[in-house]
Design a protein around this nucleic acid. Structure first.
Length: 426
RNA sequence: GGAGACGUGGCCGAGCGGCUGAAGGCGGCGGUUUGCUAAACCGUUAUAGGGCCCUAAAGCUCUAUCGAGGGUUCGAAUCCCUCCGUCUCCGCCA
């Protein structure tokens, strides 16, 4: 949500910022609505003041046994106008909010301008892919091992679901456990086990509503299935005034994520790259306004650490204005090397949302003894997407015979297992 | 799922149609007293928005807010409805 006062005072700067995301100037319409709303608000408030005053007089008269008929008639006359003003103020306010709620966040100054993913900028690369002679894709490897089943998944659940079995199922669990252990014991994140069904307000708070309802699953009683743990983790502070000295808060959770993948028909249809349901370890930070940029770098490094320890080749890019998500001021993506596809694919996205979500959720902070509050900044990042990480491990650690060696850091989580191979038939 | 009770300021708690943005207490802040601490006493202590003023802050003023949203009324924390949430009892269940 945007600060209406900022727009009032800096309409050109506001339009210029959104123009970088390809939007036409919004401030004229916003300022028009805002001006009208304030005018009717003033009128409404004056009428209310008069009504309150007259009502008070009526009260005094009645208590002292006087006749209040004349005054009551006067208020009755006021009332029609008051109702009109009230309705008008409400309608204009709703219109203004509806408009503001559909406008994306202003990009940070240092975000590169661009139209789409082709204009993203690579910042750094880690490791070089080992040259595999004839790399196979993960679904190929998984099915050959007899540990990945798309057919039965489709039969019971439809397209975009996967069944993992045996050591592959365990590998998925190991990845999540490993990530959580690193983030909680080394990086100071607090592990959370949150709800996966949430209400409208929670989804609105992180700016996935009202605009992106079609990407989400909704239950018959109106709850939403979380598309990422960002939703419940960020809502952990909804409506609160936090002690500035206790910030930043750092939360992590491993949860399933549910996405309808509307609009991605035909994209990544094979394998488990793009699913309706996948596990992800999420990182969320709540910071004071002046801390968020440093926290953004830190969070990105936390995610990078996971890939480095898994010995996976990847690169870090900064998204251009045209490729950033709705609520982000600035976003770093980590892209892991996928030998089977011979390309880098997104495995983590770390965003600084500034005060955009905080305004929607009304989350503020203040120093002890201070009176003034300010909106906090929120950040979220994948640390990492577990399903895609599983794919990356399979493809990067595949052996010529179709077996998969297990990265060293995961072996303790796999009961010492060093390699996944075709099980002996019993 | 059935029956009932309830949601008031940072916290506890009164109020159940007008003088209540809200008694009283605790806590916080400022002060007096004090060798220091404690105690006592005095004062103060919500948030958001509009208008005036204006470089800004402060200030003045108005409005809204007693879980949320509607309604009744000249007037609602108080009455009615819906929703959200909490608690108790019964049933059911991982």
């Amino acid at each position: 949500m945007h600060d209406i006062r900022y727009i009032r005072e800096n309409p050109e700067a506001f339009d210029a910022a959104l123009k970088r995301r390809g939007l036409v100037a919004q401030s004229p319409e916003i300022l028009r609505l805002d001006g009208e709303r304030r005018a009717s608000q003033t009128a409404m408030q004056e009428a209310q003041a008069k009504r309150n005053d007259l009502s008070k007089q009526i009260g005094d008269l009645k208590r002292t046994g006087g006749n209040a008929d004349a005054l009551m008639q006067e208020v009755a006359g006021l009332k029609d106008k008051l109702l009109v003003w009230e309705a008008e103020e409400k309608e204009l306010g709703a219109k203004l909010d509806a408009l503001l709620a559909t406008l994306p966040n202003r990009p940070a100054a240092d975000v590169p301008d661009g139209r789409d993913e082709h204009d993203n900028k690579e910042l750094r690369r880690f490791r070089t892919p080992r040259g595999l002679a004839a790399p196979r894709e993960h679904f190929d490897l998984g099915e050959a091992l007899g540990l990945m089943d798309f057919t039965m998944a489709a039969r019971m659940s439809g397209a975009r679901f996967t069944i993992l079995k045996g050591p592959l199922a365990r590998l998925e669990r190991a990845l999540g456990n490993f990530m959580l252990d690193v983030h909680t014991t080394e990086f100071g994140y607090t592990e959370v086990s949150p709800p996966l069904l949430v209400k409208d307000e929670a989804v609105y708070g992180v700016a996935q509503l009202p605009k992106f309802a079609e990407d989400l699953f909704r239950t018959t009683n109106g709850s939403w299935l979380v598309s990422t743990a960002e939703v419940p983790l960020t809502n952990l502070v909804n409506g609160e005034i936090l002690n500035r000295d206790e910030l930043p808060y750092r939360f992590t959770a491993r949860t399933p994520c549910f996405r309808s993948e509307a609009g991605s028909a035909g994209k990544d249809t094979r394998g488990m790259l793009r699913q309706h349901q996948f596990y992800k370890v999420e990182l969320v930070s709540i910071t004071a306004p002046d801390q968020s940029e440093a926290e953004h770098e830190r969070m990105t490094e936390c995610a990078e650490t996971i890939l480095n320890r898994l010995e996976l080749p990847f690169r870090t890019i900064v998204l251009c204005t045209g490729d950033m998500g709705f609520g982000a001021r600035k976003t770093y993506d980590l892209e892991v090397w996928m030998p089977g596809q011979d390309t880098y694919r997104e495995i983590s996205s770390c965003s600084n949302c500034g005060d955009f979500q905080a305004r929607r959720m009304n989350v503020r902070c203040r120093s002890p003894g201070d009176k003034a509050t300010e909106f906090v900044h929120t950040l979220n990042g994948s640390g990492l997407a577990i399903g895609r990480c599983l794919i990356a491990v399979m493809e990067n650690f595949q052996q010529a015979d179709g077996s998969i060696s297990i990265p060293g850091v995961l072996r303790p989580y796999m009961d010492g297992l060093e390699r996944i191979q075709v099980a002996e038939r019993k």
